[in-house]
Every structure is written in C-alpha cells, then in structure tokens.
Amino acid sequence: MDRAEILRFDHVSYIYEEEEASAVKAVDDLSFSVKEGEFLAVLGHNGSGKSTVARLANGLYLPTEGKVFAADMDTADPACEIDVRKTVGVVFQNPDNQIVASIVEEDVAFGPENLNLPQKEIRRRVDAALDAVGMTEYAGHETHRLSGGQKQRVAIAGIIAMRPRCLVLDEPTAMLDPRGRADVMKTLISLNRDLGIAVVLITHFMDEAAGADRVLLMKNGRRAALETPDRIFSEPGRLTACGLELPDAAKLCDCLRKRGVKVPPEVYREEQLLAYLFKRLPER
C-alpha cells in the first residue's frame, strides 16, 4: 500500500496582484503530492514559481485556484491554520531573516513556546532539535556570531522543535559557503532518514537534487516533470529547456557517453561515476 500523503497540491494556481494589470501567474495549474517520509527536490529557473510553492505549502499564501492539503487539512480552512503550520514547517533562504532571538536555544524555543507547551516539554524539544542539526554545543551562543550555515541550521532546529511531519526549504543553501552547504545538506538527509520527516527541498543546485527520492521540475509556474533523479538527469535536453543544467557528475557522464564510453544509464552521481571509473581503471 502507498504511504500516506503529507502534502498535496491539487490544480493549484497563484496569481500575484490579481486586481492589477501587472498580474502574474506565478504558479499555474500545479498538481503533485509528497508522501510521508519522502525526500522531494524542486528544481526550476529563477521565477519558475518555486518560492511561491514554499509559501503555498503551509498556508502563508492561499491558492487563487485549486487546493493545497497538508495531511488531510485544506490550508484555506481557517479552522486548520495552526495545525497546518504545525504539520508543514517552512525554512527560507536568508538565515538572517529567520532568527528572532539573540541566544541560540531561545531562538529554537520560540516556536514551541508559541504552541503553549509545558516548560519541560519545550526544554526536551529544544535539546532534541539542536541535537538533530548538530548544534548542541552552541546552545548558549549568540545567534549573530554564528556563520551562515550555523544560522541556517538553527533556523531548521526552530522548525524541527515544532515537530512538523514535513519540512519545506526554499533554497536554504543559496547564501552559504561550501562547508555550510554540506552541513545543511547532511542535516536534511539525517532528519529525513533518521526521524522520517518528509523534506521538500527547493534548490537550484542540481547536485543537491541528485540524492532525492523524486524531483519536481518546474517551468514558468507549471510542472515540467515529476520523476526519479536518474530519469531527470538522463535527459539533459529537457533540463536545458527549463533553464537548468545537469549536476557536475551527470554532466561528465553525459560527455563520456557522447564520446562512446558506455557509462550505464543509472550512473549520474559522483560516487557512482567514481566507482564505474575505478572498476575500469584498476589500481596500478
């Protein structure tokens, strides 16, 4: 039996400035769903509607047309607002805009405090959340002295502390250096695998999408494809048409295939390509 859906977009459109001449349809008749515990990557060019999807996912925006369901709750139903936000947590691109307190653990406690939880439970959740993002030793640190990657992990902890079943992240690594990016990615993978939290990762780093269960490819607000990464990255032409490109390893695989090297079609990730090359080129 299929796992239950934690997030579903049902023919959703979203129009900015609906009343005005400059109205823009940012999301256009978009349907897709995310299963419990799934890792979905969302790829698309600047302006493809990716960020609007993040804001629609937990009711920050309500669809102009169609419906968004978090678990089984309609995000447009005012009675469900709090439960929707508890179910689907959203993390944004700029960590500086998401930190509300001056001390790390106070920042992480902000969400659970607003849920009116008992003190003991708040403490437990804050500790668990900091542990989950690998920031325990920074609990008493000042937030403004952290690096970008550390701030972003604190922002993620703040959402995790509310125990969402689905985490939506809008380009969480765009402003980070390579180490910060790697740390955030490691955190997301462990939240997904170890805690079973569904992750929707909106990104335009192709290599971050390579490890996802499925990839939603967006173009001009519409769904261009929804497939496994090996299918997505074996069709470079479709990606290019969407204003994107292959991840580095997949690009190299593609170049090799064009030169007649028989790289198996399922190979597109860095470690797969290295394993393939090592097999053909034994140690001397």
Partner: peptide, 12 residues
C-alpha cells in the same frame, strides 16, 4: 567537463 571527458577517454 569536455576536457575532463577527453582525458578520461584517453585513459580508458
């Protein structure tokens, strides 16, 4: 990637 692929082809 093109140059790298050329180098790899030569090795293979």
């Amino acid at each position: 990637p093109e140059e790298t692929a050329d180098a790899l082809c030569a090795l293979l």
